[in-house]
Design a protein around this nucleic acid. Structure first.
Lengths: 184, 184
DNA sequence: CTGGACAGCTAACGCCGTTAGCCCTAGAGT
DNA sequence: ACTCTAGGGCTAACGGCGTTAGCTGTCCAG
């Protein structure tokens, strides 16, 4: 990626994170870089391509956060809460990264797997359980970001209930397969 | 709601469901009704108000589907899969109804509670568990609609894994509180 | 010295939601 | 019977959007 292209992505990211996706117009990005909107098209084919670059940023940031949580405390709760904290910290970036089809061939290879790694490992490698746990966390986050929970709802409690449900499944399978603690 | 207003909502719904949210423009809605776009503003203050009317339609449809599933088979799996089927049947309406803040005071009273009822009841009334289960289902649906699962992923398996996790929690609590089947 | 690629520019197109302001019609009030 | 008013349509237009066409200057390779 050329230097100008990097400046463009940086400018787009700043606007996105401070003012949201709707505020991120080609004219606004260009102004922040110090050029005019049509010149952006010398560096990116269209706005979607800029957004794909931002998705890469979002994916990498998420992977960093989840890997750090796993290293510090490899439990379902720990990783789930890291996920939540990341999304609440950078809601616009989380939305952009998340709420659209994955352009897999335009993303750096292995990035998706890297971000998914901590979740998959913490549920013991079962892909079904991993996807279900991922969906739970993503659903909680989107409902919270979208302001869909009733005012005053105990979201910490809901996160706890969901994490308990998945942690119990993980423990159950470990017990059944002979590894893990025999009782609790 | 006046007759014209109802026609407008109907037209908007048709466009939404056949061509998606982006295709639902004020000019397009007006054309389908047989008038010009500015005339819409004699019946709705702005486009957001039309969308709120559509959200009401979506909520009612969802509530109908969930209540029917509950009546036929009041289990976690049954209601979760009804939820999924509804969203896949009417993806654009589901998105519109779901992916934005709830304008609670503009919605018919009790509608939100009605849609939430089946989920809450099937998990035994615990609001934390109900919200977690709701988030799981919503997350699975959004990830599927957004094409975020790897091609070939076993989504039925993931739904099963998640439903099992929540059903086990429900059974566990019932057992602990003395009601429900003593063993399995 | 020249040719071409690169990266900027202005002008403009066709969308979008929305507003201003006009006009016709139907029904109510006197 | 006449007038007034309110409702609901219309055209024109504004300021935004992403994007394209086409021009220009600069800078380096041959």
């Amino acid at each position: 990626m050329g230097e100008r292209a990097q400046q463009i992505v940086d400018a787009a990211l700043e606007i996105l994170e401070s003012d949201g996706r709707e505020a991120m117009s080609m004219r606004g990005i260009a102004e922040r870089v110090g050029i005019r909107a049509p010149s952006l098209y010398k560096h990116f084919p269209d706005k979607a391509a800029v957004e794909v670059a931002l998705m890469t940023v979002g994916f990498e940031a998420a992977a960093d956060v989840l890997e750090a949580a796993e290293a510090q405390d490899p439990t379902v709760v720990s990783i789930a809460l890291a996920h939540r904290r990341f999304a609440l910290d950078r809601p616009h970036l989380y939305r952009l990264t998340t709420n659209q089809p994955l352009p897999r061939e335009a993303l750096p290879e292995g990035l998706e797997a890297r971000a998914a790694g901590p979740i998959t490992r913490v549920v013991g490698g079962d892909p079904d359980l991993a996807r279900a746990a991922w969906a739970f966390a993503h659903g909680m986050i989107m409902l919270e970001l979208d302001g869909r929970f009733p005012p005053g709802a105990d979201l910490d409690g809901a996160w706890r209930a969901g994490c308990d449900a998945f942690a119990a499944q993980v423990a159950g399978r470990a017990r059944a397969s002979g590894r893990g603690r025999p009782e609790v």
